[in-house]
Computed example of a mutant assay.
Amino acid sequence: MSIADLRKDYSRASLSELEVAADPVDQFAIWFDEATKAQIPEPNAMSVATVGPDGRPSSRIVLIKQFDQHGFTWFTNYDSRKGKEAEACPYVALLFHWVELERQVRIEGKIERVTKEESDAYFSSRPLASQLGAIASRQSQVVADRSTLEQQYETTKQQHGDHPVRPAHWGGYRVIPDRIEFWQGRPSRMHDRVLYIRTDSGEWQRQRLQP
């Protein structure tokens, strides 16, 4: 079978712009809860797309750590490629894809750093090995080989012991959304798409998009 012949007809559920929550974060919470209860592997995994100063986009998978009315939060190395691109162009796109539920959620908005207190609190909650890894790794920089990377980790472990302190180059980002789209797969590629757009007054408007 060729790649062009790979296809699936979606029929698990439907989505109406008349029945979704008035606030997209509330609707996201409903879907996220359903994805968690469905025991989907890593329902908190999302793609983060950034744009570099040269206009070239890049994306990667990270794990969301919090979401609320203030935005969608995850943590990373500020000196990584995504960190540098986010600082240069503070608009990003997030994507959740829950294959088993035949659903996608697309989120677009402006990115900002969370407070130092928020970053400190989350860093201290991580397993010790993950804390040391965040300090040891010069994320996105070239490394000669695996052994060099492992040596950096061992050196960090010796220097910081059992009580490492969050480095200044590591912390959280929050995306403040202005567009959130919910996509539900439907038969014959006639998918349901409901888009929320934040108005200048801060209110959310809902629209149905053609598939």
Results as ranks from 00 to 15, higher is better:
2 S>C: 01
12 R>T: 07
14 S>N: 13
16 S>H: 11
17 E>I: 14
18 L>P: 00
19 E>V: 02
27 Q>T: 09
27 Q>G: 07
29 A>Q: 01
30 I>G: 05
33 D>Q: 14
36 T>V: 13
38 A>W: 10
41 P>L: 04
45 A>G: 12
51 V>P: 04
58 S>V: 02
60 R>H: 00
63 L>W: 01
67 F>G: 08
68 D>W: 09
70 H>Y: 10
71 G>H: 12
73 T>G: 08
75 F>R: 06
77 N>Y: 01
85 E>G: 00
86 A>D: 06
93 A>V: 01
103 R>K: 15
105 V>W: 00
105 V>M: 05
106 R>H: 08
111 I>F: 05
111 I>S: 12
112 E>Q: 15
119 S>A: 15
122 Y>C: 13
122 Y>N: 07
124 S>N: 15
124 S>Q: 15
127 P>H: 10
131 Q>M: 02
132 L>T: 06
133 G>L: 02
137 S>H: 01
145 D>C: 04
145 D>A: 03
148 T>S: 13
151 Q>S: 11
160 H>N: 03
160 H>I: 00
162 D>K: 14
162 D>S: 15
168 A>L: 14
171 G>Q: 06
173 Y>M: 13
177 P>L: 04
184 Q>D: 00
184 Q>Y: 06
185 G>Y: 09
195 L>P: 00
197 I>W: 12
200 D>C: 05
203 E>V: 09
206 R>D: 07
211 P>W: 07
